[in-house]
Write a protein that binds this DNA or RNA. Sequence first.
RNA 1: GCGACCGUAGCUCAGUUGGCAGAGCACUCGGUUGUGGUCCGAGUUGUCGUGGGUUCAAGUCCCAUCGGUCGCCCCA
Length: 451
Amino acid sequence: MADSASPPSVVKPRAISGFPEWLPAERLVEQRFLDIIRETFERFGFAPIETPAVERREVLTAKGIVDKEIYALSRLAAADDEDPSTDLALHFDLTVPTARYVAQHFNRLVFPFRRYQIQKVWRGERPQAGRFREFTQCDIDIIGNGALDLLADAEIPAVIDAVFSRFAADLGTGGFVIRLNNRKLLQGLLEAAGAATPAALAAALRAIDALEKVGRDAVAAELVRDAGLTAAAADGLLDRLAAVTDPAGLDGLAETALFEEGRAEVAQVFDGLAALGVPAGRVRLDLTIARGLDYYTGTVYETVLDALPGIGSVCSGGRYENLASTYTRQTLPGVGISIGLSRLVARAFEAGLIAPGPATPATVLVTVMDRTLLADSLDIARRLRAAGVATEVYTEPRKLAAQLKYADAKGFRYAVILGEDEKAAGTVQMKDLKEGAQTTVPLAEVAVHLG
RNA sequence: GCGACCGUAGCUCAGUUGGCAGAGCACUCGGUUGUGGUCCGAGUUGUCGUGGGUUCAAGUCCCAUCGGUCGCCCCA
């Protein structure tokens, strides 16, 4: 019973919560982040790979990840009597697919294998501020065959330093600190403090991970309640964790063999950082960095922007002794890190730390005042493009005022204006839309002035 | 999965005790020749999330449902 007078129905366009999308002005800024990341990763010799968005479910769930956080892939058109369950799912990070990839292509890869991977990942969580269900991760990993020197653990933060230093210089994200810890240090201290069982250890790590959020007293209480520490042991532990900010602070704290092992590793990594030229103070030893993921076994990293401490780590990772044990008998130790670009960009926009610029990648709009001069306008655009200047020609037959309004709305830096008078004189008007200044330029020199 | 709050124009929101659906921004046109942003004038824009109930009358009250935001958990 459709009412013939009713307007044609439209599907109301709505954003899907947790699936962010940007307007062109914002996406152009995000791509500048991506350009810096990709160039820097390659400058350190990491090679690009891409893995499918979809993996077999058994590949993704092998590490004990909770099923509900993973999006399954199925067909809408599946018949009613067809089993709707599926073996396929969307990847929730890039480390697990990389482990599968390295195990599968083991005999065709050259080790140590250095790869980077910049892709969307999906997590079926409740979205919140800075939390998405679809987001871009930018991963690097160095994976050894059988062994991997600790120099790799130093190289990873050197790459992060290079990336975030360029963010700061080119995009204005400001200062940052890479916080580094070693699981063996924390675990050694916890064992010495009385966290005996694996369950107690896990509870203690979880409690300490929340230190910044809930405060020292709440963590101490949790260590007593969930990890079985005495109040005095919890207090002493938290004192020690807080006191250490560099490797020298670890001297004289050798309480267990595991701790001593971690101490030696951290010393080597900091030596490596100095040798790599990472500025002193950029990487800070922080014994409270626990990291939730259980496959980290040694060095762990977090990166926090000075201007956005509230969003937590925007770049996290660590060392795992045997990444691909689920998929191969080869021992493949690795170390890597992931930049959570979507969160970083979204929160930096919200905080006003970065701002959208022009809505076009072009710097010049060539106007068309008179359609009989269209060929001349197109020729100017051709010259500019040949000289490497991103240029657009206005396509619609509208007044000059409308064309300049368009140029302003999109954020072009320059407009080129060409009419009968200029054509007769062999010149164009070059208008600087930011300054408002307009100059007459010989046709042959347009590219020089705008390049 | 658990909890709190919120759904009105493209966007941000107002809408009083239940009584004609509103503002700002944005958009379109105009302010006479080939010049944007600022200013002035005019105009367009609605399934009040959806379904049901109460009522002479519902954006407003009640129920359900869907969606959104923010916490918890976990993490980038």
